[in-house]
Design a protein around this nucleic acid. Structure first.
Lengths: 337, 337
DNA sequence: CTTGGCACTCGGGAACACAGAGTGCCAGAT
DNA sequence: ATCTGGCACTCTGTGTTCCCGAGTGCCAAG
């Protein structure tokens, strides 16, 4: 009974603080929530909660504010993900349905998510390594140069210009193209390095330099894209909010692909809805912020992650609901195409 | 003689204000610049300059600040574009030289420009319409679906998934591919609509629905990309600066492709180094900001524009120098590849 | 036309007081 | 054992006042 009420108090503090952005005191709590006890009792509970590190007061004689630990407890045990309204769902669906290609899907998704949560949205492009090769194309540009294009089953296209070591005629290019496609078509990108390892040896000697050059570009493009592209939107939503640390640091972090990558991706379970709160964050520039992220992908395979970044003081149930919903809808869209 | 000195005073005011970010008074001017006259004389000049609208005072008994009109005069008549240092040039060159494809060029360019100017950099992707078709590829994905890929001479690749009206075999796809390439190879994108207009009629009747479907996708992808993609970087540089209008508005404008487009592009002469100062700006959310932009492209053809956006109070000579230099180097890179 | 002098204005910072919110603690009630 | 009301105390934030200094505009003299 006792502990139960303390948790209720913590929940009330989090909810009030999130909605008002002001430290919340015992009196206000007693009024706004019917906890059935007097302010004095609440004060006692708050003293305990503070001692345990769930809340803190900015100054003596100010109300209490949840700590990161407090938010953590709230997210883990005191809240439920809030589903979106029907109208919101329909809006999402129709907005995403209009996408024409993978770029468009990602762009629309990130904007949608930013608008929905009124925070900064971050979307990782689907990882190549878990998709498969649909087609490899070699297009001669000049005598000693060709365009290498790799198309995956997720609709993603990688292209590179390859400088050739020697003049090569159409026929040899066509042959290499056929060989490559026969070898790679439908295979997972992760297995490509193994598959092409002994390929030059299976070719006539005179074709080997050509093949080696093309393959090195192919492998390079795979490696390079493994830490994938990430896009974000909604930075304008940062303007109002105040973080413990400056706005500048947050914007800088957002432009660092690597940092973003780690924020979204450092989870073994790609599909889970993960929340990282304030100081749980590995990156110093993002102390005052929380990240809510989820995996998405077509079918059972999780291809990549998406999420939002906002002030620690955010409405976690709503945000988590939005992120989860968008992740699901994107997965649907990808599965359908 | 008289007017000359007034201009010198204006120049001094702009320079001091840009470097100190504080309204500049007559006494400080007389000390820091050797204008050879007393503060009182400068005051008289300043009164005239203010009457003519080149400067203004935030409050009575504060120093003067340049108006947009004042900056305009400064840029047009009182300043020279400042070339970059040799070290900076080399840094640019080596940084851009490592780019592997067109995406990479654009990404590197925008980051470089942001870092160089310590402002927000904006780069427009090379416009398709002024480039030419290098190759058209049709890749069957399933019986009723194929991937359409368009490669241009600038290394840009457009792809679309096409849903077919009927089951189509490899042979017919190959035939259409050959026809398309014969028809379009090497032609300007602008002329594509004309070139394909009567194409269905030149095909056997049974191929027409297929051709019509593919062509409609082709044309659509051209139209869609005509208002081109724009990327930006360096928003963290906005954090310190203060605009007359809020930071939020600026960030919002940056995420509006259309707005950015107009900012960069609304010039008949694509190649000129253009400066748009504060209220000269068509968009209300960007009043306190100036834009410095230049065209770039391979060879003589200007393909697109790039530039930076910063507070009206910026170092125009330096910024203009950086923008111009980067535009030139990017043009070189594009011409070489 | 320039200069030094002078009175005037106004913004911004320092000092100060004060109201209000919130706390902690204690003694009494349940 | 727990809750409650009361009470003294401690802050922050705000409003007020005051004053300094920078800067101006004007004027009369060089």
């Amino acid at each position: 009974m006792v502990d139960d009420r303390k948790l209720a108090v913590l929940r009330a503090i989090v909810e009030d603080y999130v909605s008002t952005n002001e430290p919340v005191g015992s009196k206000a709590l007693a009024e706004r929530h019917n906890l059935g006890v007097s302010p004095a009792t609440i004060r006692n509970d708050m003293a305990v909660l503070e001692e345990q590190g769930y809340i803190a007061q900015p100054h003596t004689s100010a109300g209490r504010v949840p700590t990161d630990k407090g938010y953590r407890l709230f997210v883990d045990r005191l809240s439920q993900v809030k589903p979106l309204s029907g109208a919101e769902r329909r809006a999402i669906e129709s907005f995403l349905a209009g996408a024409v290609d993978i770029d468009d899907v990602v762009t629309r998704t990130v904007r949608l998510l930013a608008q929905l949560t009124r925070q900064v949205a971050v979307v990782q492009y689907p990882t190549l390594t878990s998709s498969t090769v649909r087609h490899v194309e070699l297009v001669p540009l000049t005598e000693r140069r060709l365009m290498f294009v790799l198309i995956t089953n997720t609709g993603r296209v990688e292209q590179r210009v390859v400088e050739l070591p020697e003049v090569v005629d159409e026929g040899r290019v066509a042959h290499l193209r056929a060989t490559l496609n026969a070898c790679l078509d439908g295979r997972g990108l992760g297995s490509v390095p193994d598959l092409v390892a002994d390929l030059p040896e299976r070719l006539p000697v005179e074709d080997r330099p050509l093949a080696a050059t093309v393959l090195s570009v192919l492998l390079e493009s795979l490696v390079e894209r493994q830490d994938e592209k990430i896009v974000f939107a909604g930075t304008a939503n940062l303007a109002g909010a105040d973080f413990s640390v400056g706005l500048r640091e947050v914007l800088e972090a957002l432009e660092e692909q690597v940092v973003l990558m780690r924020l979204l991706g450092e989870t073994s379970d790609l599909s889970a809805l993960t929340v990282r709160i304030g100081s749980e964050n590995p990156y110093t520039g993002l102390q005052g912020t929380s990240i809510v992220a989820a995996g998405y992908g077509s079918g059972d395979k999780q291809l990549a992650r998406l999420g939002v970044l906002g002030p620690t003081r955010m409405d976690y149930p709503v945000t988590m609901g939005a992120v989860r919903a968008v992740a699901r809808y994107v997965s649907q869209i990808l599965a359908a195409s």
